[in-house]
Amino acid sequence: MESQLNPQVLIIGAGALAEQLETAFRGLGCATKVGPLECAAELRPDLIVNATEEFDPDALREAISRTGAAAVPSLDACRITRNREGIRRTAAEELGLPTMAYEFAKTPEELERCADEVGYPCVVKPSVSTGGLGQTVVHGSEELGGAWNSAREMRPDGSVAVERYVDFDFEVTIVTVRSVDPATGQLATWFCEPIGTRHEAGVLVEAWQPAPLSEAAMDNARSIAARISGKIGVQGVYSIELFVAGDEVYFSDVNPRPSLDGMVTVATQRVNQFELHARAVAGLPIDVTLTTPGAAHFLPAQPFDRDALARALAVEETGVQFLEDAVVIRSTAETVEEARGRAEAAARDLTA
């Protein structure tokens, strides 16, 4: 893509992430289309950008073969990151990254054995990332049956992940960029300021940037992010999820694409995560400058009346964005605490 003029880009997926990625690539002069992978046969794109984990790897491989398009992320990157087992074994066993104790079960009987080995409390999750849905914190063996059913409802095939529950201080996401450094012509790594996240029932409800990390925790977080993104190796943005407990940092997950966590960067950074992804893929200059502290609050997509929207928009330094599958409220302020308070107040106004 680096040398092409106005390349054709097919973005696979739907919803908030796909919409924002289309805007970012179009902003660089690309001809863009959001749609299913089947569009590739007629469109014959130069680049297929995957904005979702729900895709058929064999169909993607065939589309690449038939059209000659490049894929972002690459097929190898998709293979590594597509399921929790692949990610965990790469992180813990190949790279030696600190992770929670984990096992994978294919039957309810295996789940009980795995939970005993990992220890209670533990977290039972579907085999692939599901935005927090289908996850259960299990405190004893009597709860395993319900946890198995919840995970299987979200993902009927593959294994079920069992992780040791860590009493962490908070969760962070490091938006990491891999691209070509203009000064050296070699691949290099950039780190956005850490993003703190809060979930309810496993679903993201709030994100803020920058998250307060100690110097030691920051060094550990960036070391983990550099090593896992370097292992995957492709150009683009990586959303790397971590647990922080004091100065200790544990690897949780990685997605080789922008994420909902990074939606806050639309308000806080000079170049947001979607624009960074497009720039990185194109080999264009990278700028991860944070311009202001900020926070984002996430609500399910639903209609709101005009008066409620007016109240939310009256909150200082606050905007509301309606997307296909979410409503994102973003606020900025002099401090993260103030920005979080504004976003929360706007969310209350919008739903009152």
Rank of each mutant, 00 (worst) to 15 (best):
A217R: 05
E163W: 02
F274I: 03
A312W: 04
E110N: 10
S214L: 09
E110F: 08
R79S: 11
V118L: 08
E109P: 06
G246T: 13
E103S: 15
V175I: 14
V138Q: 06
S141Y: 07
L313R: 12
E193I: 11
P285L: 01
K33S: 13
L144T: 11
K231V: 12
G15D: 08
E19K: 00
L5C: 13
V72L: 09
E42K: 14
D181I: 00
P210F: 03
E206C: 06
V160P: 02
A347C: 02
I87P: 00
A91E: 08
Q321A: 15
G131C: 03
G132W: 05
H277V: 13
M1Q: 10
I224E: 04
A312K: 06
K33T: 13
R257H: 07
A226Q: 07
E94F: 07
T268V: 08
Y238V: 02
A70K: 12
P194I: 10
E206N: 02
F251C: 10
L260P: 00
N272K: 01
E215N: 09
L97S: 02
A280N: 06
E241T: 06
R66Q: 13
S127K: 13
C39L: 09
P98F: 01
L60Y: 06
E142Q: 14
S252I: 14
L17I: 15
